[in-house]
């Protein structure tokens, strides 16, 4: 977790080094601050967290993913503070021997970061500031992982 921006290429290199010689697949996801939200212009986001509990919630999500798939390395970077529109917010990099585990675990981690990582986002809009609410779609995506043992099942 950090206030400053991150470099995808630097984090990717670190992941590859940490993953070692058995790594044959690396999946990455980067989340950005949208500049428009339902025709409203967004100038930025304020990201609040709960020091200590936020880190634990992220570690728990990664631990669940590592328990579910065979992964060589996982890196998650989540920014906090005030971010301008277009900025990078979150980065997930997952390294595995083969692509199904890397793809699935990357998606799983993002779906759980959305609903179980202890952060709160406030949009700074042209018409005021509002706290973002999770959508039913976010919860449906998280719940879609319940009881599914295989990384190769097409869920959506």
């Amino acid at each position: 977790m950090q206030k400053e921006d991150f470099s995808l290429s630097e984090e990717y290199e670190k992941c590859c080094v940490a993953a070692g010689p058995e790594c044959g697949a690396v999946a990455t996801f980067t989340g950005l601050v949208r500049q428009f939200e339902v025709s409203t212009s967004v100038s930025g986001l304020h990201l609040e967290h709960y020091p200590g509990m936020t880190e634990k919630s992220m570690e728990n999500i990664v631990a669940k993913a590592r328990n579910r798939w065979s992964l060589q390395h996982v890196r998650v970077v989540h920014r906090i503070g005030v971010l301008e529109a277009g900025s990078q917010i979150v980065l997930v990099i997952v390294a595995s021997s083969h692509r199904p585990d890397a793809f699935a675990a990357c998606e799983y981690i993002m779906d759980f970061l959305k609903t179980e990582a202890v952060f709160w986002k406030k949009e700074i809009r042209s018409d005021g500031e509002i706290w973002i609410k999770s959508t039913s779609h976010d919860y449906e995506r998280r719940d879609g992982w319940a009881g599914e043992p295989s990384a190769t099942v097409k869920r959506w």
Partner: peptide, 10 residues
Amino acid sequence: VAFLPPITGG
């Protein structure tokens, strides 16, 4: 003790 509104990470 902490009161937490619904979280919106990611």
